[in-house]
């Protein structure tokens, strides 16, 4: 793997493609959560392949290759949404310290549709990196270049939102 990354950094496209294709499904799924349709998600994958190969020379820590790819995919997806003017920037630049531990073990009856429709862009990023990619919340904050406190706030808000929205649904059905 390290060898392939080195080759890719020296401009070897075959080596890069081998690496990229290991993760293309994860990239596609991540993109799908943002752009909500197959065609745009494929565009995001292609753009991610393009941007990542062009900038792989700048990847300093090969062990974070996958996280680095996912981060690029998230940017590509958000750029595409912006282009389509579908997105309203929801980022709130605040840092709120949460002293209590976040209870992540809530058994949510959520579906992929909930993920797609109920969360804003920032919440999707945090949820995907934390739970799909399995990063720690500290790694999530570093990957997204946001303060740890903000990452925690967003994570908690996202979990809360999923839970509340689902409860809402439940009440509605009654």
């Amino acid at each position: 793997m390290l060898n392939l990354i080195k080759k890719a950094q020296n401009g070897n496209d075959k080596a890069f493609l081998t690496l990229f294709q290991k993760y293309e499904q994860d990239i596609f799924r991540t993109a799908f959560i943002y752009v909500k349709n197959q065609s745009d998600a494929l565009d995001v994958v292609q753009e991610t392949a393009y941007r990542s190969f062009k900038s792989i020379k700048n990847l300093k820590e090969p062990k974070y290759f996958k996280t680095w790819l996912i981060r690029i995919a998230i940017s590509c997806a958000i750029d595409l949404l912006r282009k389509q003017k579908n997105v309203i920037q929801m980022r709130t630049e605040f840092e709120e310290f949460i002293s209590r531990d976040i209870n992540e073990d809530i058994d949510l009856e959520m579906t992929v549709r909930d993920l797609i429709e109920r969360l804003n862009e920032d919440e999707k990023s945090v949820i995907i990196l934390r739970f799909y990619e399995g990063l720690t919340i500290k790694e999530v904050s570093e990957t997204l270049e946001i303060p740890l406190g903000t990452a925690k706030t967003i994570l908690y808000r996202a979990i809360d939102k999923l839970r509340k929205d689902l409860k809402g649904d439940g009440l509605y059905e009654q």
């Binding site: 293309e24 991610t48 392949a49 190969f53």
Partner: peptide, 13 residues
């Protein structure tokens, strides 16, 4: 999917 990854890399190359 596979083909689209290739296209992105080819363009960069």
């Amino acid at each position: 999917l596979n083909e689209r990854s290739k296209m992105g890399v080819s363009k960069a190359k």
